[in-house]
Simulated scan of single mutants.
Amino acid sequence: MLPVERRAELLDLYSAYAACLDDGRFGEWPDLFVEDCHYRVVPRENYDHDLPLSTMELHGTGMLRDRVYGVESTLFHAPYYQRHIIGIPRILDYSDDEIAVEANYLVIRTKRDQPSEVFNAGRYLDTVVTTQQGLKFRQKFCVFDSELIPNSLIYPI
């Protein structure tokens, strides 16, 4: 069983992840990952059938930072707020320096002039590693349940 202190660190990482995105602090998002990370947003059907097509796939924090630059500086869209609701992470496997984690998520989107709506629902399949700065994501796969994302995917899931 994962030690209680380590589990608390893991919960802190997921809480920091949600707060960073929900507060619109996108510039801090890449700091939650190790340099050689892999971030993927993929429909469940493609993931389950091991198909390569993803809605978004980024390798390394350089690509994450480039995505943040796009969100903050070049993409034009009607602004909206996100609210992440993340279930209690389930430990699939662990060692001293790596934890395999699955956690359900729900992202609510609220446009300023419209009621809130479910934007995306699915599960995170993550690999979390120990670094000198604490736990960070090496892999974050956002496997969403539907085949479609309404409109377009601007902000990270």
Results as ranks from 00 to 15, higher is better:
residue 130 T to F: 13
residue 93 D to H: 09
residue 55 T to N: 07
residue 139 Q to M: 14
residue 140 K to C: 15
residue 84 H to K: 02
residue 21 L to I: 03
residue 68 V to Q: 04
residue 112 R to Q: 14
residue 142 C to Q: 03
residue 121 A to T: 10
residue 141 F to S: 13
residue 70 G to V: 05
residue 40 R to G: 02
residue 37 C to E: 05
residue 57 E to F: 00
residue 48 D to N: 04
residue 85 I to R: 11
residue 115 P to W: 08
residue 134 G to M: 03
residue 147 E to W: 03
residue 52 P to Y: 12
residue 119 F to T: 15
residue 63 M to S: 07
residue 97 D to C: 03
residue 154 I to R: 06
residue 113 D to L: 11
residue 43 P to G: 01
residue 29 W to H: 11
residue 152 S to C: 04
residue 131 T to P: 09
residue 87 G to S: 07
residue 59 H to M: 01
residue 137 F to E: 03
residue 148 L to F: 11
residue 27 G to I: 04
residue 33 F to M: 06
residue 74 T to A: 12
residue 84 H to L: 06
residue 131 T to V: 08
residue 20 C to S: 10
residue 13 L to W: 14
residue 75 L to D: 00
residue 14 Y to E: 05
residue 35 E to K: 01
residue 121 A to L: 12
residue 32 L to G: 05
residue 88 I to Q: 15
residue 154 I to Y: 06
residue 45 E to Q: 00
residue 157 I to Y: 10
residue 1 M to C: 09
residue 89 P to W: 01
residue 115 P to R: 14
residue 36 D to A: 07
residue 18 A to D: 00
residue 35 E to Q: 03
residue 2 L to R: 15
residue 90 R to D: 04
residue 61 T to C: 04
residue 2 L to W: 12
residue 49 H to N: 11
residue 112 R to K: 11
residue 1 M to D: 07
residue 57 E to C: 00
residue 37 C to F: 14
residue 75 L to E: 02
residue 44 R to V: 11
residue 75 L to Q: 05
residue 27 G to S: 12
residue 121 A to M: 14
residue 122 G to S: 09
residue 110 T to A: 06
residue 74 T to N: 04
residue 54 S to T: 07
residue 32 L to W: 06
residue 12 D to P: 00
residue 111 K to M: 13
residue 44 R to C: 12
residue 52 P to W: 04
residue 116 S to V: 14
residue 100 A to F: 04
residue 75 L to M: 09
residue 137 F to W: 07
residue 114 Q to V: 13
residue 56 M to Q: 07
residue 99 I to Q: 11
residue 39 Y to S: 02
residue 129 V to K: 00
residue 60 G to T: 12
